[in-house]
Structures are given as structure tokens and as C-alpha cells.
């Protein structure tokens, strides 16, 4: 096992609020210690892109994803799920733990849970028709796509008649699991092949490592 560089870790904690030691984060996730350190290289770049405060703001999150300061309701929602402590910013531990869900090795159950929360915007434990409609209208408007209200209602009718098996007007967790198993393309976004190759993408982690013999 590697030895603990307490000074370097203490420095990282001061510089990056919420910083946890790579070995600790690796033990809680599908990432190896080296992969956590490679993710730290990515985190440093994103968290310093607007304000260099060691935390990722919503603006920095969107800038990293879209390479421009565009607003996207779906990205906002993902940010809210990454922001586990609900402080309006993402620290390094939040970042690693949330990205972990997108790791190819993580069980589908966890990915389905995350995707369910993504659409359950008011956290009632159900995906309600009004939430889906609200997100759909906002995204169509942001992307410049025009669909009549009649078409949107017809798409929602069809979706809910398929997904909402007990026809109570909302989709529960079991109905969602059943629906995505029949529509696997919906889960494509939940797996990031890049995460298997993170140490190659950010090789500089080796020079900044705070853990020996990784």
C-alpha cells in the first residue's frame, strides 16, 4: 500500500474544500486510486475555469460540458444531483461520487436510480407528467425546436400510456425500471466509456500524485 503524504493532503484540503484522500474515495467507488488522482486533474481544470476557488459552480459545470456559457435545464438538473450537499457548488468528493454512477462497471440499478431522480425534479418519488412537460417545453425552447402544444400532449399521452403501467398519472421507480428496460437508449447517457480510460486522458496525475506507489 502507498504511504500517506499528510502535508500534501493537508495542502490539498485547504486549497480544495471537501477534498478527500484518493485512497478513501477509491474505496467508496469503482475508481482506482490512480483514477481518482486523474479525476482530480480534471476537477482542478473545471473548478478553476471561472473562479479559482477549488469548487465547481453551475457556470463552470456548463462551461466544461458545452465549452460555452449556455444555459440548459437538463445540465442544471444534473448539476443539482452532483451537488449532494445542496450548497450550490460541487466539491471534489461530490464530483467523484457522482461521476462514479457513470462508470461502466457500476451496476445498472444505480444508473436507473440516478436517471429516475433526474426526472423527479420535485423529489416526490414519482416522475409526474407536469415535470416531464415542463422539462420538454424548456428544452425545446432552448434548442430552437418548435412543436405545437397538441403534439407535445400527444407525445406525453403516448409516453405515459406506455410507462405508467398502473395509470395513476405518474411513473414510480418500478415503472421507470420497466420502461427503460424496454427503451435502453434512454440509459445510454448514464455510462461514460471515458471513465475507463481516465488515467490516459489525464497522465499528469502521476506528477501531482499525493500517494506513493500507485
Amino acid at each position: 500500500m502507498g504511504c500517506f503524504h499528510s502535508t500534501a493532503t493537508a495542502r490539498a484540503r485547504r486549497r480544495y474544500p471537501g477534498y478527500d484522500h484518493p485512497m478513501q474515495l477509491a474505496s467508496q467507488t469503482a475508481f482506482s486510486v490512480s483514477e481518482v488522482e486523474a479525476l482530480f486533474e480534471l476537477f482542478k481544470t473545471i473548478s478553476g475555469s471561472v473562479v479559482d476557488d477549488g469548487l465547481i459552480s453551475k457556470e463552470e459545470f456548463q462551461l466544461a460540458l458545452f465549452k460555452s456559457k449556455m444555459d440548459n435545464i437538463f445540465a442544471n438538473r444534473i448539476f443539482d444531483l452532483f451537488d449532494v450537499k445542496k450548497r450550490g457548488v460541487i466539491d471534489f468528493a461530490d464530483f467523484v461520487q457522482a461521476l462514479n454512477v457513470f462508470h461502466p462497471s457500476v451496476p445498472m440499478e444505480e444508473k436507473i436510480d440516478f436517471s429516475f431522480k433526474l426526472y423527479d425534479m420535485d423529489n416526490t418519488g414519482f416522475i409526474e407528467r407536469k415535470e416531464v412537460k415542463q422539462m420538454l417545453i424548456a428544452l425545446l425552447s432552448e434548442s430552437g425546436m418548435r412543436l405545437s402544444d397538441e403534439t407535445i400532449e400527444s407525445i406525453l399521452d403516448k409516453t405515459f400510456s406506455d410507462a405508467d403501467v398502473n395509470q395513476d398519472g405518474k411513473i414510480d421507480r418500478a415503472e421507470w425500471e420497466n420502461f427503460v428496460s424496454r427503451n435502453p437508449s434512454l440509459m445510454k447517457i448514464m455510462t461514460l466509456p471515458y471513465l475507463k480510460d481516465i488515467t490516459t486522458t489525464f497522465p499528469s496525475f502521476v506528477f501531482n500524485s499525493k500517494v506513493d506507489d500507485i
Partner: peptide
């Protein structure tokens, strides 16, 4: 309005298409 293929999508497929969100953006230059 809206082409036929769009109308044939379910609401969640349409959300995915309209958001064009892909977290791969984090790893791309």
C-alpha cells in the same frame, strides 16, 4: 409542426435529443 420522426419519439427520447447533453464533454478538448 415537428417532423414525423420527432412525433414518434417518446418524451424522454425527445428530452435527450433536445438537450444534446453528453457528459463526455468533460473529457473532450
Amino acid at each position: 409542426p415537428g417532423d414525423k420522426s420527432t412525433r414518434q419519439m417518446n418524451a424522454f427520447q425527445l428530452i435527450g435529443m433536445a438537450s444534446s447533453l453528453d457528459l463526455s464533454g468533460f473529457f473532450e478538448e
